[in-house]
Design a binder for these strands. Sequence first.
RNA 1: GCCCCCGUAGCCCAAUCCGGCAGUGGCGAGCCACUUAAAAUGGCUGAGUUGUGGGUUCGAAUCCCACCGGGGGCACCA
Length: 821
Amino acid sequence: MERAAYDPHAVQERWLPVWDRLDLYRAGRADGNVEGGAAKKYVLDMFPYPSGDLHMGHAEAYGLCDVLARYWMRRGFDVMHPIGWDSFGLPAENAAIRRDEHPATYTYANIETQAESFRRYAISFDWTRRLHTSDPDYYRWTQWLFLRFRERGLAYRKSSAVNWCPQDQTVLANEQVVQGACERCGAQVTKRELTQWFFRVTEYADRLLADMEQLRGHWPERVLLMQKNWIGKSLGAHVDFEVSGQTVTVFTTRPDTLYGATFFVVAADAPLALELCAPERRAALEAYRDQVRRLSDIDRQATDREKTGVDLGVTALNPVTGKQIPVYAADYVLADYGTGAIMAVPAHDQRDLDFARAFGLPVRVVIDTGAADPAESGVATTGDGVVVNSGPYDGLPKDEAISRIVTDLETRGGGKGAVNFRLRDWLISRQRFWGPPIPVVHCGACGEVAVPESELPVRLPDLRGAALKPVGTSPLGAATDWVNTTCPSCGGAATRDTDTMDTFVDSSWYFLRFCSPDYQDGPFDPAAVREWMPVAQYVGGVEHAILHLLYSRFFTKVLQDMGMVDFPEPFLALMNQGQVINQGKAMSKSLGNGVDLGAELSRFGVDAVRLTVVFAGPPEDDIDWADVSPAGSVKYLARVARLAEDVGGLAGAGRDASVDRAVARTVDEVTRLIEAQRLNVVVARFMELTSSLRKAVDAANPAAASLRDGVEALAVMLGCFAPYTAEEVWSRLGHDVEAGDSVHATTWPVADPALLIEDTVTCVVQVAGKLRDRLVVPPDIAEDDLRALALASDAVIAALDGRDVKLVVVRAPKLVNVVPA
RNA sequence: GCCCCCGUAGCCCAAUCCGGCAGUGGCGAGCCACUUAAAAUGGCUGAGUUGUGGGUUCGAAUCCCACCGGGGGCACCA
């Protein structure tokens, strides 16, 4: 008999226009046709940057997220699954220079390409909520939020050393500096002192850390760990030292080693170094500072570097020993961590010891750890031990000494317990064009003045091509007509701020905008946000583990403090999909191992690619495209289509308990597996069910009703993974999809609990832990009966070989273990 | 250097949470059927010291310890 061929492309062409017409994925209108009514679920993928067309990475991330979104739709939830574009950013600007056009041209053309690809890839997006961060309607509210942050003292300007690329004559974001070099041109990045805008994220450090407890279990553990390390909370103390009549405070995590502080170091690039320096050492310090400034980041960060520094010719008073200790400036002390000055305890800190050995400074052991003397061994002892050489504290264990010394410092003055964070304030200024302009005007008379809300957005001027070339200042600065303005406060002549904001600012609140994308009275409608937020499931790559996720968490907390939202965390659950690699390596042009998504889709079809990325392994694992087989997925989907064809033609109402049980077991297990996000295992279960239904059909099983129900259940579940094929199957079973009876508008199958109970169980019988026999028993068999059955088994008697039985372990109904003497 | 995760068949994965038959999926390999032949399709088969060593247990892939190998994060943060 001639089989109906399975042509994935024909199936796509057939159903895509029908789905467009049926408008299946609009949020906010679920009919609550499943128990539990229509509870809301907000499912979100990290929105894409519009660089070219979609690639394999998108295929995986959006494919995985779509399974979850569709599953919850089938479970009767009112699901919001929106899409938008993170459409400001440097690549568009570079393309515009190259092609002599406006960045918007490249950006919006790519967006259209990606949107069409998403549509064909059959992601269940609610297209009515689409947004682009580069639209004035969007960045108007990015600017509005900036002004609210500024009112609260959370946005401020300060002078700071930033990454500078001498080749491109421009400031670079940290993420554009790869191992000390400019990611664009490869030049060594240096530091340059510039006045920049910052967000005061450090004020939220403690809450960002503490609230991670709410995320534990729902976010990948390693992401929480990375954020924890990034925030870097350290407990310790501030201790005051007198230097030339001036009080200089240091931060230390080891107040117990105060008696071992034999010298004092300030960061060479901190202003404090100049203040403390004796006049006769001034020239030496300036020379050293020049030398430090010329160092590239990559050199400066090398930990095995020789310690360098310069004696400042002054001394500091150790507050507990009463001794004057020398003061140095060195580049191993960081200007922007702690107070920019340290007490150096060479015996118990490796860096201080290295410095002491280089400069011939004394080493004084104050904690006896039992290890060799650091002065001899060159290895600082940082472990636990007993306090020595420390006056009244001698003999105390380390931890007790810490609390005693801190208490004494607080009582006597001169110090107190303190907490310090590694987290730095977020530098948001960019000397670039394609971003939201900072809505501030600089007036000679009034200073910094906010642009009034009624004048937002501050639109970008119409610059293109060569006008965007980096010249060391923002391209906005050259747009004279745009820069020159009047002061909103006094009406006098003033200039606009020429910085634009980091694109991470745009993406720190887009998930809120999706709740009410057309809202005109604020960044979002509070009622809509109450309805949808927080995001129930967020999906994206682990490369955003810190920046985007930390900033979004920060924004949410600020908005909570402003009373605009009533929750502290934006994303209740997070899934990190792995990367798609090829032949063991990240895909790249230079390696020639790239896999083109469009080519794969043309060859195998959308469903096969979607199924392959899900089936390849656990969602969070990388997929090596060389290890997987989209051709195998095509084969499987064709098998399902043929099964539907055969079953669709069966007549009759016959049922078969073993078929019904197999279906019920699969439904039950697949449901639990999806909830646990074990999506690769789900596909294996589909394949098993398909095989067993196939066998039943081939055996001329008369249970037509059971088989039909089974294939229907399979179609509904498979619809979340391979939406086109599932619709085709659904249609072959006789459903009128064009009339609205789509597999993507139906409800998830329910397993009858009665079918999940087995009438018999296979009991394993072991002798001394080795498998010797299997017994088929009722599931509710009594322990004693099972023991008797097992002991009577011929195989057991043979294995015992006359030995006495010492112990019989019975775990009814699954196992008996007979232990011989 | 510090911290985290992972080692199961030639390869990708199940079984690990909560100890109880190492397989139930895929790729590849081999064989068979269909075919003039091939492709496609269907069926069948084989493959294991569960990284290594030790411990706990009646029983360990699973729990504990050490080591080896791989991946990742942080790193002059006091």
